[in-house]
């Protein structure tokens, strides 16, 4: 296998909130090879965005910081470097150049007072030393690459003149401007309607294959995971609770939380059938625990149908269930 583009080991990211330190991400290992897509899934607040921002060096200053771990990143130089402890300036030079990010909200992620073309040109001017004219021409080409018709005219328009789907294409063009080795997409389709979602997913998959980028795809939609990812990591309360290839994890989930998530996904026709019968979709009972108040041991125990006393003794380790499949459940062989 190729040397990984991103190799996170033992990451712990903490936030200082009201004089207390909250651990938003803990014991996180994650590795992505060139050309590979890894999906990060989990309910709201499980730490998916914090993981992404930790890699990008975009944690809110003074509030959030990486407390422990290494993030080995192999950028354009070809050498793996640890992003943890790198100077802010060194990280800035990697951002938008070697690694790039697409955010959830296409409506608000673009600056309203600059044209779409100017915003796509900006990273090429910063990192690649392109002149204004060169970068502007490249921006038009990028808009064409992401499937925007009449790209020259669109480049001169302001964000509010584009539809949501088109804006998301534009932010993808902006992220790809310097041909990054790693693309982090944080729920890039959540804010879009279903048909546009599918188009954007296809576009991302196509661009990734063409460029051989590594992609970290954050989502809470398991249908999207099945469509786009090679491997998946399921997060719960800041930890990865199950990881493996998408086929393995979806066909043989080895963690009760993943099972619950999979059960709550409407299968084709099932949703309408349930709606007709007047039964709500099955969801996982109970609520995500607050970080300030995590239960001892397995954080999922209060909601877990398999929980036993042993579960609350210590945080279960990520056990190897075979074939690169891991589960953070002490009862994984039984379920």
């Amino acid at each position: 296998m190729n040397a990984p583009v991103l190799d996170i080991r033992d990451l712990r990211t903490v936030f200082r909130v009201g004089g207390r330190e909250l651990t938003a991400v803990a014991d996180l290992d994650l590795s992505i090879a060139p050309g590979e897509t890894v999906a990060l899934v989990g309910e709201s607040g499980s730490g998916k965005s914090v993981t992404s921002l930790s890699v990008m060096g975009l944690l809110p200053r003074k509030v959030g910081r990486i407390d422990n771990g290494t993030i080995a990143f192999r950028g354009k130089s070809g050498a793996a470097r640890d992003l943890v402890g790198m100077t802010p300036e060194a990280l800035r030079q990697l951002r938008g150049n070697d690694m790039a990010m697409v955010f959830q909200e296409p409506m608000t992620s673009l600056n309203p007072v600059y044209t779409v073309g100017e915003q796509i040109a900006e990273p090429m001017r910063i990192h690649l030393g392109r002149s204004r004219a060169q970068a502007a021409a490249a921006a038009v080409q990028l808009l064409a690459d992401v499937g925007i018709p009449d790209p020259a005219r669109r480049a001169r328009q302001f964000p509010h003149e584009l539809s949501g789907g088109m804006r998301q294409r534009a932010t993808i063009a902006m992220a790809l401007a310097c041909d990054p080795k790693l693309l982090i997409a944080d729920e890039p389709t959540t804010a879009l309607d279903v048909t546009i979602q599918a188009q954007i997913l296809d576009l991302l998959a196509k661009l990734q294959a063409e460029r051989g980028m590594a992609m970290l795809f954050v989502t809470h939609n398991l249908g999207v995971v099945a469509e786009i990812a090679d491997r998946v990591a399921v997060m719960y309360a800041g930890r990865i609770v199950e990881t493996g290839t998408v086929d393995e994890v979806f066909d043989h989930p080895r963690h009760p939380y993943t099972q619950g998530l999979l059960r709550s996904v409407p299968r084709l026709g099932q949703a309408t059938a349930l709606k007709r019968a007047g039964t709500p979709l099955p969801t996982i009972a109970g609520a995500v625990p607050s970080l300030a108040n995590l239960p001892r041991g397995c954080a999922f125990a209060p909601r877990c149908p398999y929980a036993i006393d042993a579960c609350t003794v210590a945080v279960p380790p990520l056990a190897d269930t075979g074939g690169g499949h891991g589960s953070r459940c002490i009862r994984w062989p039984e379920i």
Partner: peptide
């Protein structure tokens, strides 16, 4: 606090220009 300021940082814009330009 706006998303586009975060986008500017994600592009590698220098902090001075994040403030002044964006």
């Amino acid at each position: 606090n706006q998303d586009y300021v975060r986008t500017a940082r994600a592009k590698g814009v220098r902090e001075f220009w994040v403030i002044v330009k964006h």
